[in-house]
Design a protein around this nucleic acid. Structure first.
Length: 553
RNA sequence: GGUCUGUUGGUGAAGUGGCUUAACACACCACCCUCUCAAGGUGGCAUUCACGGGUUCGAAACCCGUACAGACUACCA
């Protein structure tokens, strides 16, 4: 070995005490069953998770579960500017809201589980430096003293001459610096970054395999990319990816499409160290159509639905969100679910080949539809329990009523539920209140009554009184309806709508007008679930009160 | 400027050369059912797969161009 190189490497990394072999021993190959997949989700600690990230975390987690593998949460805090206070807790919480728990890695702001840590990159300094030092020792990396303005300058020249932009070939000034000079500069206290001495040739092609896109041809990487940054001595993403995913024995790297372009860099890094390469899957981005009608990446800043906390706040059941995520993750999932209505998400196996390569437009109406169907399958008491939790956090007024009237509330949620075709109107926990508020006297105030057909005051009084005094029969639904019809006939309203349509001039109106009036008087709404069920739950006394309230409004 | 990816209806998409006169689901529209609504049922919604060439007996699928969209091209991830 070149002793000069050793001197340089020692100077650059005085803190390194271990060797790569030491780390290989510390973090041995995992002893997993064949087919078990090791994935990882590696966010910056920004405190919350973006929809696109949630999708990839969800897929990472799903594959790990499906194969009996490991899902790891690693924190990429190598860009200190992005970190926020308690950022890890925030991420963990967002993930937890969708039942995603790491098998390994960070489990709180400061704690982790697993034998492959530390799982926070800023705590892995010495490891990165050990690997970087190895590279310097073998003349595969070098210190670069170029300043930001020098770099800007060469970029401008490159732009002007329409040359490829970057630090490569003759533009890589520090690559050809003599070792002596480099040593001298470091001794003189000059700042430096560590750059890869890329062995690639831009004119040669390589073919890399992506699990969703198949084989892709790239030019070899010839960029002398930065491995270790100057001021904080932290690694760049590229280098951290190599070291961490190798040492954590990640088998499948699933990440956004934005990483596709740096695939050749990562492949080259693994080749240089002769490490076993993980498989890669580059996922299509989650897009939306904005006000101007153009398609663009869903943005954390601009789009409220981009932050996963939004779904929690809206009260969309996490199960529904997961079903939606699965439909965009694997295009065959929806059909599978239709054909296997009794099976759950866990019975479906994630398939890389069914991942769409093109960016997905985020479709919130589809999500609501899935949510609606999910509510349709829940039991009334499940709804009650979950709604109780949701309102505790987001609607304490309603929460108190739910506590006070537990059984009554469950009965409300059970209206038209335990039947062959259950009604489907709830789209979220938040939406429920607007469907049932009138069932609670405490909320039946400051009303705006919907419009009704029958408005003439004497007629209104006559119908409500006649109904209440002579025709209200709550013993069972059939009797109830017979009585209503009877009353209509007596008062001159058609009890059969078909008849009415044939000869409308023969009647004052039809049964729908009459029940419409009763419905609005009782609930203030013209659209509600089954009237009989509502009346039955309300009971005679409150029906009377509400009729009077309506008449005197 | 360079590199790479993508392009099937309003949306998500199936489709790997003949079974496609293009599944399925969401949305939308119409009708039916019906005391209102939600559901549910029936039907409609791409003469055509960004465009132009080519290969082939045969192409949405294969090849070549073009266009458009997106990503990357940082000591950000």
């Amino acid at each position: 070995m070149n002793p000069k190189l050793k001197e340089l490497a020692d100077l650059m990394f005085p803190d390194v005490t271990k060797t790569i072999e030491d780390y290989e021993k510390m973090y041995p190959e995992r002893n997993l069953e064949s087919g078990a997949v090791v994935t990882r989700f590696a966010p910056s600690p920004t405190g919350f998770v973006h929809m696109g990230s949630l999708l990839s975390a969800f897929e990472d987690y799903k594959v790990a579960r499906d194969t009996g593998g490991v899902f790891c949460l690693r924190i990429e805090d190598t860009d200190q500017k992005r970190s926020v206070e308690n950022g890890i807790e925030g991420i963990l919480n967002d993930l937890k809201n969708f039942d995603i728990k790491p098998d390994e890695g960070m489990i709180s702001e400061t704690e982790s589980i697993g034998e492959y840590g530390p799982y926070i990159q800023s705590e892995r300094m010495e490891i990165y430096h050990t690997f970087a030092k190895y590279l310097v020792l073998h003349d595969l990396a070098y210190p670069c003293f170029c300043t930001a303005s020098e770099l800007d300058e060469t970029r401008e020249i490159q732009e002007l001459n329409k040359e490829r932009i970057g630090y490569y070939g003759s533009f890589a000034k520090c690559r050809s610096l003599s070792i002596d000079l480099a040593i001298e500069k470091i001794k003189a206290g000059q700042e430096f970054v560590v750059r890869l001495k890329s062995p690639g040739n831009f004119n040669s092609k390589i073919v890399l395999h992506d699990e969703v896109r198949g084989d892709i041809e790239f030019p070899e990487n010839d960029l002398d990319i930065v491995l270790i940054k100057s001021t904080d001595k932290l690694p760049t993403y590229h280098f951290a990816h190599l070291v961490d995913d190798h040492l954590m024995r990640t088998t499948h790297v699933m990440r956004g499409e934005e990483w596709l372009a740096s695939f050749p860099i990562h492949d080259q890094l693994f080749s240089i160290f002769n490490f076993k390469k993980p498989k890669y899957a580059h996922l299509g981005l989650v897009m939306k159509i904005d006000e101007t009608g153009t398609r663009r990446k869903l943005s954390k800043r601009k789009d409220k639905e981009a932050s996963v906390e939004f779904y929690h706040r809206e009260g969309i059941p996490k199960e529904a969100v997961k079903l939606y995520l699965m439909t965009i993750a694997n295009s065959n999932f929806e059909e599978w679910l239709d054909n296997n209505p009794d099976k759950s998400l866990d019975d479906f196996k994630f398939d890389f080949k069914k991942v769409s390569a093109s960016g997905t437009l985020f479709d919130i109406s589809k999500l609501f539809n899935i949510s609606k169907n999910y509510f349709g399958k829940m039991t009334a008491s499940d709804i009650y329990d979950n709604l109780l939790k949701w309102t505790l956090e987001f609607d304490t007024e309603f929460h108190d009523l739910l506590v006070k009237y537990k059984d009554y509330s469950i009965n409300i949620f059970n209206i038209e539920r335990e039947v062959l075709k259950p009604r489907k109107d709830y789209t979220s926990y938040r939406s429920i209140r607007s469907f049932v508020f009138y069932m609670y006297d405490e909320l039946f105030k400051d009303l705006e009554y919907d419009n009704v057909k029958i408005t003439e005051k004497d007629e209104v009084i006559k119908i409500l009184n006649t109904y209440y005094n002579e025709y209200m029969d709550l013993s069972d639904k059939d009797n109830w309806f017979l009585k209503v019809k009877e009353m209509c006939d007596k008062l001159g309203y058609a009890s059969n709508i078909k008849e009415y349509k044939k000869e409308p001039e023969k009647y004052k109106g039809n049964i729908a007008d009459v029940t419409g009036l009763i419905r609005v008087a009782l609930t203030s709404k013209s659209n509600t679930p089954d009237l009989y069920e509502i009346e039955k739950l309300l009971g005679e006394e409150r029906i009377n009160e509400r009729f009077n309230k309506y008449i005197n409004k």
